[in-house]
Design a protein around this nucleic acid. Structure first.
Lengths: 207, 207
DNA sequence: CGGCAGAAAGTAAGTACGCACTTAGCGCCG
DNA sequence: CGGCGCTAAGTGCGTACTTACTTTCTGCCG
């Protein structure tokens, strides 16, 4: 659990305190998971009393939800949909993979909180799928459809859906082992690895 | 939680009772997760008192460990290593995929317990990686190495490791969405889907 | 075949403690 | 001086695990 952060005990504006608590909570939830994190830990890490914590967030579950909200998935996925759809499909997929691997390297905490949340808070699983995963899968499926079409129409439409799921699973592997099991080392160079992964599905030489 | 099972209240031999408790626990842990399952639930489902439960398993954590033990991973993976290494690499990979998808369809509970255990019981993550995942990855890597070698030595050795991880991730996707999120439907025909997945990595026509 | 001792299977009723969440009130800033 | 930020000190409930005790089986001796 380490020492509580050493904030000078200032009086903060409500919003500032709120986001400071959120930041601390991201840390603690990532380390300990939802059930593992005690409200005491959360308050301590933020350098405030438990009472204040409950003034800002009615329940512990609300706090996780607020974290996931603050990450801004909706916008991020929207942005991906906007930008990557236009790209050549191969590149679109590279960008998705690179984006995922980079985010993972830069801050695995977010992935940990998601995994913990999805497993430990039953409602969150479906919510996450609806708001995020299903949209990403749809985007990936469209990209694969186009990629397959470009290389001769040998493949059925269903193949693109299967490819998208397998591809997304590949990214999953890194998220899971990098953020949760934490034994496999994360790829040093996300861009390079992203291309290597896409190459498995859409070999360059065949282009 | 549903009604407690309707076992006639027999006196059982220690070993029989033990495995009956294990069976019930598999059910409950799969439904509720490690923290979510109360020892009360576990006892109720098995139709015995909590005291008896603790006579058989010293702690709740021991009980999960015993479940994972009873699944017999060590033997299963050993068997895979023995049999699948000899096969043509493409077929070996198909069999691994098929095995995973079939097991998932037949009893997702096991996968749920693993996921929950790995996330909620920190020690279990490393343990699981060492005993199981790393060995499977090694097997898959060897198969990819051979497959790549057969099709002209264009690829570096590292590629096989990346391919194995991506491939395993693809299986992961189904385990995760099938067992945890439970929105995506599981593939109806595991064998067919297994081949479709392997095809993405090693297209038939190129053979 | 009793019958009886001792082990093994089982339980009802705790216990102690950890945890999410409250209450009642203090003091600083505008 | 009013209200906003903040806290010390609860509260009560849920839960993993125990204790102390009863019931049933088993094997052995006369």
């Amino acid at each position: 659990m380490s020492a509580p952060e050493f904030f000078p005990k200032l009086r903060l504006k409500s919003d500032d305190r709120r986001s400071q608590i959120l930041a601390a909570a991201l840390d603690v939830f990532a380390e300990l998971g939802f059930h593992g994190a005690r409200t005491r830990d959360l308050a301590e890490r933020a350098g405030v009393s438990e009472a204040l914590l409950f003034r800002h967030f009615a329940t512990k579950e609300d706090l996780v939800r607020a974290i996931l909200e603050s990450v801004g998935f909706e916008e991020r996925i929207g942005m991906m949909e906007d930008h990557f759809t236009k790209l050549p499909p191969r590149e679109g997929l590279c960008r998705i993979a690179e984006y995922s691997l980079t985010a993972l390297r830069d801050d695995p905490r977010v992935f940990r909180v998601i995994f913990f949340g999805v497993l430990e808070v039953p409602d969150l699983a479906g919510e996450f799928y609806r708001k995020f995963l299903s949209r990403l899968l749809a985007l990936e499926t469209r990209l694969f459809e186009r990629a397959f079409a470009e290389r001769g129409a040998r493949r059925a439409a269903q193949d693109a859906a299967v490819a998208a799921r397998s591809f997304h699973g590949s990214l999953f592997f890194y998220q899971m082992t990098g953020a949760i099991v934490r034994i496999e080392p994360l790829p040093k160079n996300p861009k390079e690895r992203a291309e290597a992964i896409v190459n498995l599905y859409l070999p360059e030489e065949a282009a």
